[in-house]
Amino acid sequence: MKQSVATRMTQVKWNNYVIYYIFFGVILLFSILLFDRGFLSGSNMMNIARQTAMTSIMAVGMTFVLSTGEIDLSFGSVVALASIVAAKTLNSSHSIMLAVSCGLLVGLVIGLINGLLVAKVGIPSFLVTLGMNGIVLGLARWVSNLQSIPINNDVFTFIFGSGDLGAIPILFIWTICLTVIGHLLLKKTPYGRRVLATGGNKISAMYSGIKVPNIKISVMLLNSMMAALAGVLYSGRLHGARYTLGENDVMIVIAAVIIGGTSMNGGKGSVIGSLLGAVIMGILNNGLILMGFSVDQQMIFRGLIIIVSVALTMREKSK
């Protein structure tokens, strides 16, 4: 026993810090490679902040889901449906409050259904949300008739995505606020502790008096609500809603969370890590565009990153 104390003292868990190395590594790499193309310019940085805001916000919710050992594949279409519902409500009622509430309601309802099916019926979350993705996407296409829905309400677009406070994009403020709240919730509150315990060992969580099904419902709900909010923000930033919104985000968000150090097996999660993961994905995207890669090539690259990052977490586990 004595000896193992000694080994524990000297153990440096480089895995916990790997995200920071990657983060600075990527910035350094692009700063050098793309120096002459304005990578480091203030406007490009703000651009990256705007582009990664939505994925960062969704990554907060996804961190909670993966921390319990579940997954959600339906949130991409929740983004689309929430943006469409918010835009349609806004155009017919001209009430920002009502529009945002209806958009978020989409997330609430879908998250609740997902959660109940996972926790109470016992269907694997992978299957539930894969099916739900089809349902919600179909609804989004049907409701919008495959048309874009333009938004001309300046107050709405300012608050939800397009505005700048001085030099700072309002999306940046949304991101920081939600990340800080998410971080405190996961790491500092009893709720977060229960989320991690559920993912770490379901049985002992139960024996410790944690209501595991309720925790699972709550994370599915939280993730769906975050996706709905991202949908509202998309519609504000783009001055309109469309059924294609969010379709590419599922892969990026899950990759960001895993790169950020959250375990797919549950029990280990970091909201800050997820934010950095999202920013890394954003910078890569931005860098690849500046380098002149096509959308197709970017997709291939993102897919590779997911596989490599998951392979790294697996290696860490088997040690």
Partner: peptide, 16 residues
Amino acid sequence: LSLIPTMSVAQNIFLK
């Protein structure tokens, strides 16, 4: 054993 392996000793002790 009914501990959560991914948590610290203190976190486990006061999980209940």
